[in-house]
């Protein structure tokens, strides 16, 4: 059974800002069909670097759709500097929380936003920098380190909930554990 808040359900059933955005001047994409969820975020940004409109198209479960919907609601009206500070926790909080195993849906929203802002500013984000740890979901050590630090993750389960890493064949769980340990060791 779904352990979703009423707000998640409501945003899934009546998503805000769904669809492509005509005249968008920034786009950010994360996820893939194979991984089971994907989000394409469209932004319209004015000359003062303010987000005047935001829409999305999303493939995924109810919490992926709700996270996308929440993200667009949160960032509309923000300047890019403000928007760049939006985290996955903000998305989750907006929805009254997400089930632990679905935190990766909010992480996906944050990732798409980061990419859209970089797209607008003409910054090239290096695709998947670092060493590949999880082959099933294509997650690198640098992404794991970032998520562990930002969210205070402690176990491999936490990492799987946030990044999906380790949630496929499970062969990389030892390596994920080693990455977590290395972050802890560095304090």
């Amino acid at each position: 059974m779904w352990d979703y808040t009423d707000k998640v359900k409501e945003h899934f059933l009546n998503p805000r800002n769904g669809g492509e955005l005509e005249g968008a001047n920034a786009v950010g994409e994360t996820g893939s069909l194979n991984c089971g969820d994907a989000l394409k975020l469209y932004l319209k940004i004015n000359e003062n670097e303010r987000i005047i409109d935001a829409t999305f198209i999303t493939f995924g479960c109810a919490s992926a759709v709700a996270s996308s919907s929440a993200l667009t609601e949160i960032i509309k009206g923000m300047t890019l500097d403000e928007a760049s500070k939006v985290t996955n926790d903000d998305i989750s909080d907006y929805l009254g929380g997400l089930p632990k195993a679905k935190m990766h849906c909010s992480v996906m929203g944050q990732g798409a936003l980061k990419k859209a802002i970089a797209d607008y500013r003409g910054i090239q984000i290096l695709e998947k920098p670092g060493e590949l740890i999880c082959e099933c979901f294509e997650v690198t050590d640098l992404e794991i380190i970032e998520a562990v630090k930002a969210n205070g993750l402690e176990t491999t389960d936490d990492v799987t909930n946030y990044l999906k890493a380790g949630g496929g064949c499970g062969q990389c769980l030892d390596r994920i554990e080693a990455v977590i340990e290395s972050v802890k060791a560095k304090g």
Partner: peptide, 25 residues
Amino acid sequence: DAVEGESILLLLDKEDICASSGSAC
């Protein structure tokens, strides 16, 4: 094609239809 099982189940559930899915979620 191109849609996710959990989302489908939730829309069915809203209309009191019980089914299941082989999807990841």
